[in-house]
Write a protein that binds this DNA or RNA. Structure first.
Lengths: 223, 223
DNA sequence: ATTATCTATAGATCTATAGATAATGC
DNA sequence: ATTATCTATAGATCTATAGATAATGC
């Protein structure tokens, strides 16, 4: 099934070997965790998918939980960093009059683009985030990795909505992130529900609608 | 910890015993599944929480998967039925001119009220739904149990938005359900993020904002 | 010499079934 | 007599560790 990486045993440096093995393990674990969750995946499942022995999981990652955390952390910095940069750029461009929609475009479109351009592996990571975000332990991972970007977004939203209470702004963000996570999950539910009109994988369709939709929602809260 | 139900061994009819055991098992499983997911819970965990032997799980529910499905199905009919009734009532009341916000109030507020009034057990069910909704297998459970209500909502939204494409209406629903599931999950993330300004358990706060917010979002999609 | 990978295995746990026991039902 | 619950146990699987083997590194 997987293009038997064990076949081509070209001579590689140990550093290369290590880097390659680490990446293959993380990719395999990422996919499996995104589909079945932490407890639904065994180290044997991951090893089999890579084509190596189970004990190698322990060699590189002390135990299953740390493998999971390594999977989550690997791409968290990338998406977080990109969005942070986009928000700072928007802040600079918008000067004294940032808008809700502008901030949301920076936050949402930047992320959706990453998955659209990043291919299958990034899509797997997106699904993992979505899955994790609706669980108690998972939410703490979100805290750890994404609080800074989210608080940056919130700070711009507050400047765009100076007469809003913090409560209104945070609940608005809560709606936004729920909708985003539902998108990243790509469960296929919207496909079936809509009889094929919409597709879970169509992040472009979400991108054309989401920032505008949510901005209008924010503006409705006081008025 | 749990108020040792095994203590009071009053004389009960077998039908009563069965009903009570079934309910206790379902309640315990519901809580545990909502916290740890299908694979994160063992039948022994459930049995211990109830205070009976593991094999009783098999006596009442053939296997773990079927226990899970029974947990999910138990309350699905209630929430689905209530919302369906509320939507039909709204349809009748609104006559030829239903509004997006009216339909969303019927759909969302009815559900939120159920959890607000239903106490801890219903809150556990809500968290289970949220957890399940962002997973591939879980989404199929959602299909099975909630398609009719959702399609009813969509049909009213379409009448309220006669010039909208199906695609716009379904993506709008996708945003709504994502935000709702994020609410039901009650992970505590919004509490920590907002520094205590918002509370995951405060479904009343969500209820006062959500239908209005989402209705404005829908209206923004064309215009 | 060091590091990547595998073999062997301990110990724990989990699901599921067969059959025993102790209640309720007529 | 029937049903609810428990005891005993088989068989599978899972995590994790110790130690062997086979590569790369100087």
């Amino acid at each position: 099934m997987s293009d038997g990486s064990a076949a081509k045993r070209v001579r590689r440096s140990k550093a290369e070997q290590r880097a390659e093995s680490l990446e293959q393990i993380l990719d395999a674990a990422e996919y499996l965790f995104s589909q079945h969750g932490l407890h639904g995946v065994t180290l044997r499942d991951v090893a089999q998918r890579v084509g190596v022995h189970t004990t190698l999981m322990h060699y590189y990652f002390a135990d299953k939980r740390r493998l999971f955390e390594a999977v989550f952390a690997r791409r968290a910095g990338v998406t977080s960093g990109r969005r942070m940069a986009a928000l700072e750029q928007y802040e600079a461009d918008a000067g004294d009059h940032p808008t809700v929609e502008g901030a949301l475009h920076a936050f949402l479109d930047t992320d959706l683009d990453l998955y659209i351009q990043g291919g299958e592996l990034w899509m797997n990571y997106a699904a993992l985030c979505a899955r994790v975000s609706n669980t108690p332990e998972g939410a703490q991972l979100m805290d750890e990795h994404f609080d800074p970007v989210v608080l940056k977004l919130v700070s711009i939203l507050k400047r765009a909505l100076p007469d809003y209470s913090d409560e209104d702004v945070f609940w608005g963000y809560h709606f936004v992130t729920g909708a985003l996570m539902n998108t990243l999950a790509r469960t296929g539910r919207i496909d079936r529900l809509s009889g094929g009109v919409c597709h879970s994988d169509d992040f472009a369709a979400v991108k054309t609608r989401m920032a505008r939709f949510m901005a209008a929602g924010f503006l409705s809260l006081k008025g």
